[in-house]
């Protein structure tokens, strides 16, 4: 399979000018500038195959957006190399730009005062789409994103959810082979988040497009991505299947028991950390190596009606990952 993205030792230092305050300081800094370097991405390497849908995880400031910006060509790395669809992104060649799309959840490309279809018309011209292709692509996006009647309403009058869908349509009109999504569901309500996720999955499935997405919403990642790349403080921490991430970084499992009659929480504590205990049941966090023994002990010593052994929630794993590194 061909690689859609190949990154080798990708590194980005931000040179933030240390300047005097005020207008004169700004003018002076044009001629005599002092800088402070901050490493946002530190030697990250990975390879993403064509058609993959990969989650890109990390805490705030971990370097996710910076990496996406380098892969889309917005930023030039300080060191390392990358190829996206065979191009060096930061050369910003039109042939490359015609095949990618970068969607940043909080930034809009739509014209505010006029209907979204005018922005679509502009993108048709920018990407050089024929009328037939434009119509075909737009019809499909309108159907998938349920945009119908919203196309002719000025963008400023659309709800956030409608605007985000129109934003996605504008970004995908040229049917990019590589889609870089930065927090695509941010600010959307639960129903709209679900619709956006379904759309991303369907777009990936229908067109075999490669999708790389960052999200703080773990549901996005769990529902969409089988593979995740985790970075922390600019460094690659994990690259592999999502379920293995849980195995590798969660040192405990959850035992959830339902009892016929109340049990003593203090007594249960000898088997693990009791996180909840009520009249009809209890929840315990048990170290992985003690799960079998603890489960057997519960079955043997307590009036068990039901017992489940569960993996830790991915959300918790990622949170722990970021707080322990």
């Amino acid at each position: 399979m061909a690689a859609a993205i190949e990154a080798h030792g990708l590194t980005k230092d931000y040179r933030s000018p240390v300047k005097e305050l005020g207008l004169w300081g700004g003018v002076k800094s044009l001629f005599d500038r002092k800088f402070k370097d901050t490493r946002a991405v530190d030697g990250v390497s990975f390879r993403i195959e064509e058609g993959e849908l990969v989650g890109f995880l990390g805490a705030n400031g971990a370097g996710k957006t910076t990496t996406l910006k380098m892969l889309s060509g917005l930023l030039t790395p300080t060191a390392g190399s990358a190829a996206a669809l065979g191009f060096t992104p930061w050369r910003r060649q039109p042939e490359f730009q015609r095949q990618i799309s970068l969607v940043m959840g909080q930034r809009s490309q739509l014209w505010w005062e006029i209907p979204a279809q005018e922005t679509f018309r502009l993108n048709q011209a920018i990407y050089g789409l024929s009328d037939a292709d434009f119509r075909k692509h737009l019809d499909e996006l309108v159907e998938l994103l349920e945009l119908g009647e919203h196309l002719s309403v000025p963008v400023k009058k659309l709800s956030l959810g409608q605007r985000m869908r129109a934003e996605l349509a504008a970004a995908l009109l040229h049917r990019p082979r590589l889609l870089l999504l930065d927090e695509p569901t941010i600010g959307l309500d639960v129903v709209m988040q679900k619709k956006a996720r379904e759309f991303i999955r369907e777009y990936n499935r229908r067109h075999g497009a490669t999708v790389m997405l960052t999200s703080h919403n773990m549901t996005d990642v769990v529902e969409l991505c089988r593979r995740v790349i985790v970075i922390e403080r600019g460094r690659l921490l994990y690259d592999g299947p999502l379920d293995r991430l849980v195995e590798r970084y969660a040192d405990h499992k959850i035992l959830r028991a339902r009892f016929h009659k109340p049990v003593d929480a203090a007594d249960l504590a000898r088997l693990g950390t009791v996180t909840a205990c009520g009249d009809d049941g209890a929840t315990l966090q048990v170290p992985r190596e003690k799960v079998a023994a603890s489960a057997a002990e519960i079955l043997r010593s307590y009036p068990v009606a039901d017992l489940n052994v569960e993996e830790v929630d991915i959300d918790d794993v990622v949170r722990r990952l970021f707080t322990h590194t």
Partner: peptide, 13 residues
């Protein structure tokens, strides 16, 4: 200033 210019820099225009 707002960074909105990014959306033009990644498009072929």
């Amino acid at each position: 200033s707002s960074g909105r210019v990014s959306s033009y820099l990644v498009r072929p225009i």
